[in-house]
Nucleic acid binder design. Structure first.
Lengths: 357, 357
DNA sequence: GCAACCTTTGCACACGTGTGCAAATCTTTC
DNA sequence: GAAAGATTTGCACACGTGTGCAAAGGTTGC
């Protein structure tokens, strides 16, 4: 008698009970919505999938029910089934430095506008390179990885490509691997700086870089030195410390104590601003005694205390190229061609280079 | 004859074929690892789950196989089953502004150190408030949401809490809801600034704020005005524009043209730096003619051209409190108590306030 | 050698979603 | 009004993982 009732309860009621228990302290699922709307779970799924076939009536009922229950599709499950998320991994260090901060600001905004989201990994904590960071990102089946700091080894890049994850290197060198690389024209910029100083009549010239051995640093400094030497001048070189304001101050103290320079190129605006302050502390008048050119064009360079003449990297070009590379993967079926872009730079004339006599 | 082969192939071979097809162009799964290591999939799962029971032998074999195949656990699937990811959602706008950038830098670093990752949403794109952004974050079943910009309405906060997602408001007001709020002591800081200017002998006092109606702005400006009035002085007030350097310049031009001030409090360092430059352009000597105090202590305030005396928010305190709030949720079983912290600030004396006579 | 106990292993189910396929419903055309 | 076509719907399987449960294996103590 009781055996007749029990099994029925166990088989049909058991599942219901468990479900209700879970949803009470957890999220609303599409099944809950389907039940309330009186349709199948498929209908719910299709309602939230753009381009799927649902009648207006059902769509409306589902949306109503979803609203009532506070339903949100579970991105984890959706990404699991489609084996791809709308996430883009971003690796960057020194996020507080003006140039990097602007880059991240623009990039995260652009991604959001295209319906993607930004999984941010701070490379500052990475003692053993950024490979472990990229592995963390890969665990989320991201659509692409943007590297703005550190240089990933070939092995990990290849692995990403093998899994259909695009790797985009911004201002990082890795010519021999299968990654998109997008860099500003450091060589052209350094040449412009050299030409401008020479044109201004500078003859005792110096260059300030940090001790960091990044390709960008080396390219800017090296190119500048070459051009100055071509003009028959042996430039004074500073190359130590971090890529910071303080290093610029230090460089001014060190360089100007031993050399009576009248023209200096700093490979980074941040260092240039420090250099300006350092030079002023040593009694130099800018630009009468000493002309200074920077590189990047960060917001602070336009401030009234500095008005730094500098080589501008176009932030919008940079962001645009990164996004184009990401979307190339999404649209095309097969392996989209890799980008190897070199973006043009331009000289921004302000007030730290003396006018040509 | 052929009908005999076909069904067999379809039923048993079909699945295998599909699997192999997928894994070829996709990621390695735990099943692949299990097969190579000659164990069950459970063993693989347990090998990568801290604290699970696996023999040393099996663990070794699994790790070997995983290494060979380049296996990485699928975070999406793991999070799906455990209904929680190691993600923390971060909402912020104006990421390129120095204070925000530093905050994000420290936070992302701290999160990574604790094994969490940072899902970044840029609130700049949010015309209709940050509710849609928070919804996007919720879709990833994040562990917590840190809001550094914009103020979420009560409804969405309650919904987060109901789903076990902690909402942490940094320098945002929302006293009446179930969110952790962590703010710097704006009131105390404004008082310190007022006292310091009065102590320096300033009698013709002004205050510079932006037009933004954020609680932080209002609190700092309002408190300062009250304290100055208490001293029997009617302060000049500037309150328009964005919270930017340029606004500071504009404020100096506007305020100093009509008032001959000898002491000014800027509610933000960024505006204070602009104000300094603007005041200098108008011929004021700092601090002889005019004393200036800022708020935040951004890196630029220490630069030699400014040496701004300012009220410092402790970045490490801020980050520490945010992390504590996140981890409180993880450790405790039940609903952990909400934080309503007000962090102390301190005056950093530099060179923009004249020494007491 | 056997009982008692602890550790390790595999099975099977669950998580919440997308989607191919066939059935069902609606629309159009003659 | 029926046939042909177009649209909508539900079923059922798949995605890759964690974990309770019971069986199996290993160890200890008498």
């Amino acid at each position: 008698m009781d055996a007749e009732q029990a099994p029925v309860d166990m088989s049909s009621g058991h599942e219901d009970h468990l479900k209700r228990d879970r949803t009470a302290r957890s999220f609303v699922t599409s099944e809950d919505v389907a039940r309330l709307a009186g349709v199948s779970r498929s209908a719910v799924s299709r309602t939230f999938t753009p381009g799927a076939s649902v009648s207006a009536d059902v769509r409306h009922r589902v949306q109503e029910a979803a609203k009532t229950l506070g339903y949100r599709v579970n991105r984890l499950a959706r990404s699991l089934i489609s084996d791809q998320s709308n996430l883009v991994g971003v690796v960057g260090a020194n996020l507080s430095l003006p140039f990097m901060a602007r880059q991240l600001d623009e990039l995260s905004r652009a991604l959001l506008r295209r319906g993607m989201q930004c999984l941010l990994l701070n490379a500052a904590e990475a003692e053993q390179g950024i490979t472990p960071l990229i592995e963390l990102i890969l665990e989320f089946r991201v659509r692409a990885i943007v590297v703005m700091s550190g240089s990933p080894p070939t092995s990990i890049i290849d692995e990403c490509m093998a899994n259909g994850v695009r790797v985009i290197l911004v201002n990082r060198q890795a010519d021999d691997t299968e990654a998109d690389t997008i860099i500003s024209d450091d060589i052209g910029g350094a040449r412009i700086a050299a030409e401008r100083l020479l044109q201004a009549g500078c003859r005792r010239i110096g260059v300030v870089g940090s001790g960091a051995q990044t390709p960008t640093q080396i390219r800017r400094r090296g190119t500048f030195v070459d051009w100055i030497k071509d003009a028959g001048i042996e430039p004074a070189v500073w190359a130590s410390g971090n890529t910071l304001y303080e290093t610029g101050v230090e460089a001014a103290r060190g360089l100007l104590a031993s050399h009576d320079l009248d023209g200096v190129f700093c490979v980074t605006d941040l260092m240039a601003l420090g250099f300006l302050d350092g030079a002023r502390m040593m009694g130099r008048r800018i630009p009468e005694d000493l002309s200074v050119i920077g590189f990047d064009d960060i917001p602070q360079s336009a401030w009234a205390s500095y008005r730094l003449t500098t080589v501008r990297q176009s932030m919008s070009d940079l962001t645009g190229s990164v996004l184009a590379a990401i979307e190339r993967e999404m649209s095309g079926e097969g392996m989209a061609p890799l980008a190897h872009e070199v973006l043009p730079v331009e000289l921004v004339e302000r007030a730290t280079v003396r006018s040509t006599v």
